[in-house]
Design a protein around this nucleic acid. Structure first.
Length: 560
RNA sequence: CGGGACGUAGUUCAUCGGUAGAACGCUCGGUUCGGGACCGAGAGGUAGUGGGUUCAAUUCCCACCGUCCCGACCA
């Protein structure tokens, strides 16, 4: 490619809106331009990288036995109605209607579509298992796009769907995809951490995110730096014992000055640590309108995801409003740990680690002390509904550390979730009986992966592409091009490299200074820089993007 | 959707009641030519949109639209 003809040039300034390095560099180096918030043009250089990434994904997926295909972008809305996801999806479904007034969903994920195509064949157990996948544009009506390519509203995703006869066979495919993903990201130079995470409606053990550790990432996970890596939503930890052997004292209602309102006031007033107080957090189920009060030890925070699982309302809880509190006869700061009619009480396991809690029935000028779980109040159930935090201990006694990362891929157990909801999503087993498929799905965000690579591989000068995903292998620079013999020589080098099938970006601009060309080369970040000038004689100067030193090589050496 | 910031040339920013200016980039000419050179000339803006206040609005006020950041949300 001749740089002079390349669409998408480098620029000196990034837009002031860009806060992330990957966003700035991809903009400045001419890989992307924004259309509207969260929707990007991927320019020629950017698309070359995306192609390389997709090439690696495709190669490894095929090697693992998966088969590439393509589904329509517009999904018949009736399919989403079949699984009730027109209502329950976490993301706002984008809909569109054709001239016949038929409604479609713009695909944000494609489980229904893949089940639909599979059921058109009504396979037998002999046809199973299989894993089919696609690279397709995904549409998400994100509430907030963010950080260049990091969180967008349209992006290319590789999404794969596996169909097995049962869980046991599914597990093998799950492991297969796990290994495949590790290999894919390794090939791109990305070190991924496999993080246990929440898969929403199913729960269970099969859901993992592949995360590139990075402070600018949106995924928070806890790790013991050895074996245990878990998303904050699911991370388990040992609740430390506060005083569970202490003797239970008599329950008492005590006077309390009116200035005592917040947890901090409590600490000041009673001169006791946070862990000795009861804390109540109120949620509302946005579907059923049910009020849920989570009761927890004062030093811990409620983990909404865990709570949703505890009350079997995945994706349905939201913070209660003042009006909700009024409805159950209370107000902010005065929620009781028991007794509010019309509310369900769920307690955290930590309630058992403290004797003689303070609080729980705060009124205007009184509160309760020496409150004990079991004796003075009980909840509908005690469950793990607390948010794990850094420095908490695992059951193994290891310390947890909180890290952030970019989720570049995930693997997911679907089980029977879709196959049982969708009509005829079955295969015929050995005994001639219909059985639902046991499914899994596996995604990789291509654009986000690209951004993660830039976040990891760059320096002050610009991007440093790993060779496997670089838009070109060589960045050829011609200097002293007014000299006809040098000009013809560098064009000759370019032609011969192309003839040998090498990927070359050739900076053939004649009126640009050397410094400019070098700066552009560093910014674009192609792995090998070649220079032909009056200094290089018969040879070509070679410099790796990652190194400072240069050396002279012959054309044969390069092309061989 | 809540909180905050903002919208002026392709980009970064100035001007802040009196009809818009710089740098970079771009075009042309010349001098340079191995780390973002220099000189000269030039093109490029209905100041997001609409309304209001005013003799006069890019500037003040309101609404809408759009953008970014934090939060909520995120198969």
């Amino acid at each position: 490619m001749l740089y002079s003809k390349l669409f998408g040039k480098t620029v000196k300034n990034a837009p002031s809106d860009a806060t992330l390095t990957s966003h700035k560099l991809l903009y400045q180096a001419g890989f992307i331009r924004e259309s509207t918030a969260g929707r990007y043009f991927i320019l020629p250089l950017g698309q070359l990288v995306q192609s390389k990434i997709m090439g690696i994904v495709r190669y490894e997926m095929n090697k693992a036995g998966a088969q590439e295909m393509l589904s329509p972008v517009l999904h018949p809305l009736v399919l989403w109605e079949e699984t009730n996801r027109t209502k329950t999806t976490g993301f706002e479904l984008m809909k569109i209607r054709d001239r016949r007034e038929i409604w479609f969903a713009l695909g944000g994920t494609a489980e229904e579509m893949f089940v639909d195509v599979v059921r058109k064949f009504r396979p037998s157990y002999k046809d199973l298992p299989f894993n089919i996948y696609q690279f397709a544009m995904k549409f998400r009506d994100e509430l907030r796009a963010r950080g260049g390519l990091l969180r967008v509203r349209e992006f290319i995703m590789k999404d794969a769907y596996s169909f097995d006869v049962d869980e046991e066979n599914f597990k093998k495919e799950y492991k297969n995809m796990w290994n495949t993903y590790s290999q894919i990201f390794k090939k791109m130079g990305l070190n991924t951490i496999v993080v246990e995470s929440d898969n929403g409606y199913i729960g269970g053990e099969y859901c993992h995110e592949f995360v590139v550790e990075s402070d600018i990432g949106e995924t928070s996970f806890l790790t013991d730096r050895e074996k245990y890596n878990a998303h904050v939503d699911v991370a388990l930890f040992e609740r430390d014992d506060i005083n569970s052997t202490e003797e239970e004292k008599p329950f008492k209602i005590v006077e309390q000055p009116e200035w005592v309102k917040t947890m901090d006031d409590n600490i000041k007033h009673y001169q006791l640590p946070k862990s000795r107080f009861l804390k109540n957090v109120v949620y509302k189920n946005r579907i059923t309108k049910e009020i849920i009060i989570a009761v927890i030890r004062g030093d811990l925070d409620v983990n909404k995801t865990k709570l949703e699982h505890a009350v079997n309302a995945v994706g349905q809880l939201e913070d209660a409003t003042e009006q909700d509190l009024t409805k159950i006869g209370t107000k902010r700061g005065h929620v009781h740990s028991w007794g509010h009619k019309g509310a369900r009480y769920i307690g955290d396991l930590s309630l058992k680690t403290v004797k003689n809690f303070i609080g729980g029935q705060k009124e205007k000028s009184t509160d309760t002390i020496n409150v004990n779980y079991g004796r003075d109040f009980t909840c509908e159930k005690l469950a793990d509904i607390a948010l794990a935090k850094e420095t908490y201990l695992l059951e193994t006694g290891k310390k947890l550390v909180e890290k952030k990362g970019i989720e570049v891929g995930n693997i997911f157990q679907l089980g029977y979730h879709y196959s049982k909801k969708m009509k005829d999503a079955t295969f015929i087993d050995k005994n001639g009986k219909e059985k639902p498929f046991y499914m899994g799905c596996y995604g990789i965000g291509i654009g986000r992966t690209l951004a993660a690579i830039v976040e990891k591989f760059h320096d002050e000068q610009g991007i440093i592409w790993p060779e496997s995903v670089a838009p070109y292998k060589y960045h050829l620079i011609g200097l002293d091009l007014k000299d006809q013999s040098i000009k013809s020589k560098v064009h000759q080098v370019y032609k011969e490299l192309l003839a040998k099938g090498r990927e070359v970006l050739f900076d053939d601009r004649e009126d640009i200074t050397a410094g400019n060309k070098f700066a552009d080369a560093d910014l674009i970040g192609i792995p090998y820089r070649l220079v032909v000038s009056k200094r290089t004689g018969d040879k070509i100067e070679l410099k790796k993007r990652t190194e400072k030193s240069t050396r002279l090589v012959s054309l044969d050496e390069l092309a061989s």
